[in-house]
Design a protein around this nucleic acid. Structure first.
Length: 464
RNA sequence: GGCGUCGUAGCCAAGUGGUAAGGCACCGGUCUGCAAAACCGUUAUUCACCAGUUCGAAUCUGGUCGACGCCUCCA
């Protein structure tokens, strides 16, 4: 049984797909005005775990992630850089795809760009207008009339009267009847240059919320299974999506809303002024491995704030090394006699999936994995593992890595300089020139390479 | 003011009524040229605090203290 915490009802519920065997999944994607930071990437890694686990559990997952390429920030930044909106956002979309690949995140089946769905958005706004859920303001903007939708506030559990009128509202330059109404379509403004589209209400551009409603519905229908995003999106973004979508279609829209908590760095909110704002590239430049970064983002439960530290990445690397060491040792087993691991691996599969099925309890799942890992190391040390068992163990590691995505190494090759050094050290060791051997080992350690001398030769691994 | 999350060993963290998983770190040992890895052993009578329910609570109830998030466009 698979259960998830559904923000809509604020409790853990059994997951049942709308049509058996298939899960329709929509995840809020990046606004492409900058490189993704590790907080963004945490969300994508969580969604990747969700998707991989659903697939592992036998579901076919249809995954859609939007790319927001039209909003205040993409407009402003592209104009500042003197680029067309498209060429500006193209660059960041490209680097987004690169980051996804680096972190071994499975690609969504569809990455719709907001600017490619303008006609559909206009159509949906028109529909809302016809149904009296929207009204046009003097400046050519169209707003959603919240008073026309009694269920508004259901996801957030907010009573509208209780909303505090904040300072941000005063900055709103659009004219609406009620403060709480939100823009479906924004009338063109002078300082936005030629970035506008024609519409029945004059030139303008879509509001933020409408894009997700349109693009999710386009690919997944008016009623689908799971919608994910960061907790900050619960209000207003997802609340507004529900209002628009349900008002337009009369359908239920989404069954399960899953939201990930934020990532903090060294106990503080990530921000440029605190100088703790990291993109993936920043971390790779510090010689951290993609797998260790992925493990760090993955290994904290998604509804828990993740405190990202360099120490935690280093710990992650060590955990991965332990798994890889087991893999290496298993591949050397030749014994005919011994434990075949049949019982322990089937228990592992059971425990691992049972934990993940419990609202993606990754810590519990990893606990089960490492308990098993230790037990296999014991058998290896005692030479009580059969070749049959070793094969079964390797298979288990490989299978679970389909979900974790951290054991298999993308670029296991070393550059020639390191290989030469290792060879040199081997020669020094055969000549019992220990001081030279140790000197080379120290040199490699400084380069982040740790050596282990085994009876069958020297192996290296990444340290951090 | 409203809504919500959280407080378990030095750090990360699972467990949500039956007597504290796992990872990292540390210490002692085996192994090793020395290391590393792996293994063996040690490491929370205790789960922020107080009271209550119960045969029994980290787990349920009430309260206190502390940290944090959201409340119009930030994953």
């Amino acid at each position: 049984m698979i259960r998830f915490y559904n923000t809509l009802h604020r409790k853990i519920e059994e997951f049942k797909p709308i049509s058996e065997g298939t899960v329709k999944l929509y995840t809020c994607g990046p606004t492409v005005y900058n490189y993704a930071h590790i907080g963004n990437l945490r969300a994508y890694v969580f969604e990747d775990l969700l998707r991989r686990f659903l697939e592992y559990s036998g579901y076919e997952v249809i995954h859609v992630m939007n790319l927001t390429d039209i909003d205040d920030k993409t407009i402003r930044r592209s104009m500042e850089e003197g680029l067309s909106l498209k060429s500006f956002t193209d660059g960041y979309i490209e680097s987004f795809y690169e980051d996804i690949e680096t972190l071994n995140i499975k690609k969504a089946h569809h990455y719709p760009r907001a600017t490619e769905f303008i006609p559909q958005m206009v159509e949906m706004v028109q529909k809302l207008e016809e149904k009296k859920h929207a009204y046009v303001a003097d400046d050519g903007s169209v707003f959603f009339k919240i008073s026309s939708f009694p269920d508004y506030g259901k996801l957030t559990n907010l009573k509208l009267e209780d909303l505090r009128v904040g300072q941000r509202v005063e900055n709103d330059e659009y004219e609406k009847e009620e403060m709480r109404d939100f823009a479906l379509w924004k009338g063109a403004k002078a300082d936005e240059g030629d970035i506008y589209w024609d519409s029945p209400w004059g030139p303008g551009r879509p509001g933020w919320h409408i894009e997700c409603s349109v693009m999710s519905t386009y690919y997944l229908g008016t009623h689908f299974d799971i919608h994910c995003g960061g907790v900050d999106n619960i209000f207003p973004h997802h609340e507004n999506e529900i209002a628009q979508s349900c008002a337009a279609s009369g359908d239920r829209f989404v069954n399960y809303w899953l939201h990930n908590e934020h990532l903090i760095v060294n106990g503080q909110k990530m921000s440029k002024s605190l100088n703790n704002f990291y993109t993936l590239r920043d971390l790779l430049d510090k010689n951290l491995s993609p797998e260790a970064i992925r493990y760090t983002l993955l290994s904290t439960h998604y509804r828990q704030k993740l405190n990202f530290t360099f120490e935690s990445v280093s710990d992650s690397q060590k955990s991965i090394n332990r798994l890889r060491e087991l893999k290496r040792r298993l591949s050397l087993v030749e014994n005919i006699e011994g434990d075949n691991l049949e019982e322990s691996t089937s228990r592992l599969y059971h425990d691992f999936t049972q934990k993940l099925g419990s609202d993606l309890n990754i810590s519990g799942a990893l606990g089960a994995l490492f308990t098993w890992v230790s037990s296999v190391f014991v058998l290896l040390d005692k030479q009580q593992l059969s070749k049959d068992g070793a094969v079964r163990g390797l298979k288990a590691l490989e299978t679970l890595d389909h979900i974790l995505g951290v054991i298999e190494e993308k670029n296991p090759s070393l550059d020639t300089e390191i290989e030469t050094l290792i060879k040199k050290r081997e020669e020094a060791r055969s000549a019992k020139n220990w001081s030279l051997a140790d000197e080379i080992r120290g040199k490699l350690a400084n380069m982040g390479i740790i050596l282990e001398d085994t009876p069958k030769g020297t192996v290296w691994k990444r340290g951090t």
